[in-house]
Write a protein that binds this DNA or RNA. Structure first.
Length: 257
DNA sequence: AAGCACGCCAACCGCTTGAGT
DNA sequence: TACTCAAGCGGTTGGCGTGCT
């Protein structure tokens, strides 16, 4: 799944994200939050449009993302919700912690839809057989709708902490305990540190060259520190008072859902 | 081993929604 | 109330991987 990188007319990069771009975006959002997606790439040192950054963050980089390894429970939940909500992928994703609308949408089109079709075919075959049985008056459609109606009451749905029931570990396990408030907002960098082993969390972002931290962000020298030492200080030193984004005078605001 | 076909999924595009003025 | 702009959402595209011939 990668697209060949290219540039559009405005010189903004399109296509596949490189690990370096991922590092920049992740580091910036973690540090300053997503205060304005349109402006963000400029300050994060990315030649991307804000929309692309947002999408990359929301669908791939943000914490608590689970990738692949759909459990049976998750599949069932998606099927039930799709039956009642239709193609409202964001609404469906909201019921599945760690899953993105994009991923669910893809999963639906590539797996579940086919499976459902197969099932409905086989059930219609069954109902054909049953229709020959005078004791069965239910059409396949009725049977299907009955099946679905069993799950129509969304409010009664148990929101699955399906990650825990998933048989295979997901790639987001390292993020699974980032504390979010009820709106999915990360409230402080300390809270991240508190709940993470910082070294493993930032390992992927430990760029070999120090200019990763000095080049992309700001002219403000206060942000120029070296990844190998200084960067981790804010996350490891309990005395550290986080520096807020110069563009947002307050807590970091970043929807992690 | 090479070529082909198909499936998967990351990413883009355009429309809609909602907040701010 | 009308307008503007940013964010969110869903549909679609297209490149890569993999299985099949």
């Amino acid at each position: 799944m990668a697209r060949t990188p290219c540039c559009d007319k405005n010189g903004l990069k399109k296509g596949t994200w490189t690990p370096e771009e991922d590092r920049k975006l992740t580091a910036y959002v973690i540090r300053y939050g997503c205060w304005n997606w349109r402006q963000l790439p400029k300050y994060a040192g990315l030649s991307r449009c804000g929309k692309s950054c947002r999408l990359r963050w929301m669908n791939y980089l943000r914490p608590n993302i689970k990738r692949g390894n759909y459990s049976k429970e998750e599949d069932d939940t998606i099927i039930r919700l799709h039956e009642s909500l239709g193609n409202r992928w964001a609404a469906i994703a909201a019921q599945l912690p760690g899953r993105t609308d994009n991923e669910i949408k893809n999963h639906w089109h590539t797996n579940l839809k086919k499976r459902l079709n197969q099932n409905s075919n086989s059930s219609s075959d069954q109902s054909k057989e049953k229709s020959e049985d005078p004791s069965h008056h239910e059409t396949s459609q009725e049977g299907e709708s009955k099946l679905n109606n069993d799950h129509l009451d969304i409010t009664s749905l148990q929101i699955l902490e399906s990650s825990s029931s998933s048989p295979l570990p997901s790639s987001s396990d390292q993020f699974s305990s980032i504390p979010l408030d009820t709106t999915g907002v990360i409230r402080s960098t300390e809270s991240i540190v508190e709940h993470h082993k910082v070294d493993t969390f930032f390992e992927p972002y430990a760029a070999p060259s120090s200019n990763f931290w000095t080049e992309p962000f700001l002219a403000d020298n206060s942000y120029n520190f070296n990844i190998s030492n200084d960067f981790l200080v804010p996350f490891t030193d309990p005395e550290y008072v986080p520096v807020h984004s110069p563009f947002f005078d307050g807590d970091m605001l970043c929807p992690f859902i």
